[in-house]
């Protein structure tokens, strides 16, 4: 599944070359037709994050204080971890934990 992932608010520092926007191909888990946010988080943690994964995830979700938007909509309105992603969705992660 083609997805565009965007990292901001300092989260980009955990990725290679601090790149903010990543166009990626995420395979659904075995036996499943779609990718859920839960599955995407695991994939991001394993495939994209280069350092300090604890700044991004905690337990099976994002670290509290990290905001998530799916197609510019707060993921809390989209089902959170259970939200099912569709082809060409844009998922944005923004940390609020850095100084202001």
């Amino acid at each position: 599944m083609h997805l565009t992932l965007e990292f901001g608010g300092g989260l980009e520092l955990l990725l290679e070359n601090s790149t903010k926007v990543h166009k990626v191909e995420v395979p659904p888990k075995d036996g499943q037709a779609t990718v859920t946010m839960r599955g995407l988080l695991t994939w991001v943690k394993d495939s994209l994050i280069k350092e300090r994964p604890e700044m991004f995830v905690k337990g099976d979700s994002v670290r509290p204080g990290v905001l998530v938007l799916i197609n510019d909509c707060d993921w809390e309105l989209c089902g959170g971890l259970d939200a099912e992603l569709e082809e060409k969705d844009v998922v944005v992660f923004i940390s609020t934990l850095h100084g202001g």
């Binding site: 309105l77 989209c78 089902g79 939200a83």
Partner: peptide, 11 residues
């Protein structure tokens, strides 16, 4: 009840 998780922007 959250049966099917609502799609982004459906509310």
């Amino acid at each position: 009840a959250r049966l099917p998780p609502p799609r982004a922007g459906s509310r």
